[in-house]
Design a protein around this nucleic acid. Structure first.
Length: 225
DNA sequence: ATCTCGATAGTCT
DNA sequence: GACTATCGAGATC
């Protein structure tokens, strides 16, 4: 087991979610990923956050990268569940998905927002920000942390996620993985999580589908409902 | 608070 | 050649 994983266990995090967790429909997995912990381990340090917003993309969904079949770009989405599908968009941003479903089926869950929990200093530096230089109105803990996790491309930048993470196995504590939260965890909300389901953001097709999932009233979601 | 717009390059038609 | 599962700045209310 890696040092990073040992550190996490000491911090109260559980083992990575198993492949069976991901090997179900994206619409089932997406809400269940809420409140789980996304961890990134790189040579410059460990960063982690609590997932507060996700979106499901299935193959029969006109908004999905897989809607028109397999291409070099989306091949990971058709592969084994529990791997990371990282894509580049708008000429400058990366976004992270967890591949779901069965092999040969193109589907995944987009991670849209996290609450930063560990390594926030490193996250700020990856974003080219420093708390001291923030405008006064953004210096509160919540406002500052929103700058690190409120958005799919923003969280990738904070966690150091880029093309090299495409295909990474999320079920092993390697470079990128996701854990459930222990009940005893200091970060646990204490159960009773209320999940809100709404339409997705930033798409022009299948806009009516309610496949965006977020934790009710969480201050770290990318946009209000 | 909410809107509009530009940046910027990979992907697919 | 058009589009993009985005972001942040600047304008306006």
């Amino acid at each position: 087991m890696s040092d990073a994983s040992c550190d996490l266990l000491r911090n109260g995090f559980s083992e990575p979610l198993p492949r069976a967790f991901y090997a179900r429909s994206a619409t089932i997995v997406a809400p269940e990923l809420l409140n789980c912990i996304l961890v990134s381990a790189s040579p410059d340090g460990l960063t982690a956050g609590r997932v507060v917003e996700t979106e499901a993309y299935t193959q029969d969904d006109a908004a999905s990268h897989c809607f028109r079949g397999r291409t070099p770009r989306n091949r990971v989405m058709f592969g084994t569940a529990g791997h990371a599908y990282v894509y580049f968009t708008y000429g400058m941003h990366y976004c992270l998905n967890a591949v779901t479903g069965t092999e040969g089926q193109g589907e995944a869950v987009l991670i849209r927002a996290i609450e930063p929990l560990m390594g926030t200093e490193l996250m700020f530096s990856r974003r080219g920000l420093s708390v001291e230089r923030l405008p006064i109105e953004k210096r509160s803990a919540t406002r500052a942390k929103r700058l690190l996790g409120a958005g799919p491309a923003v969280l990738c930048r904070s966690l150091g996620i880029s093309a090299s993470h495409n295909g990474a196995d999320l079920t092993e504590p390697g470079s990128l993985w996701i854990c459930a939260v222990d009940v005893e965890n200091e970060f646990a909300s204490g159960g009773g999580l209320t999940v809100v389901t709404t339409t997705r953001i930033g798409i022009t097709k299948a806009v009516e589908l309610k496949r965006r999932f977020l934790i009710a009233a969480d201050p770290y979601i990318s946009r209000k409902i």
